[in-house]
Amino acid sequence: MNAGIPIQFFLILATLMFFVGVYGFLSRRNLITILMSLELVLNSVNINFMAFNRYLFPHKMEGMFFSLFIIAVVAAEAAVAIAIILNIYRRFTTINVEDVDEMKY
């Protein structure tokens, strides 16, 4: 099903997605949107794994399992991150990352 599409296309797509995520991480103020940017970043990594697996090592399944575990870790990370965000919200009554700067000089 992937005939006629070079691997570079997948990689470039993943790269763009990755850096869009990075941009979001750097520029958004709301903690939840920052978390969403992170999801984009992780998702782009998954695409890379899958593409490498299919194009370079089609007889193996490493890439797929890596993606599988990454998804599991992301689920755990999201759960903990959201718990932390809720806690921050309760403590500071805001989830604006610029206002949460207790740990400064």
Partner: peptide, 17 residues
């Protein structure tokens, strides 16, 4: 140099990236 320690998460991330 203590002003570097601003507590701004995104500033750190920017420098890091």
């Amino acid at each position: 140099i203590r002003k570097f320690q601003s507590g701004q998460l995104q500033q750190y991330a920017f420098v890091f990236i």
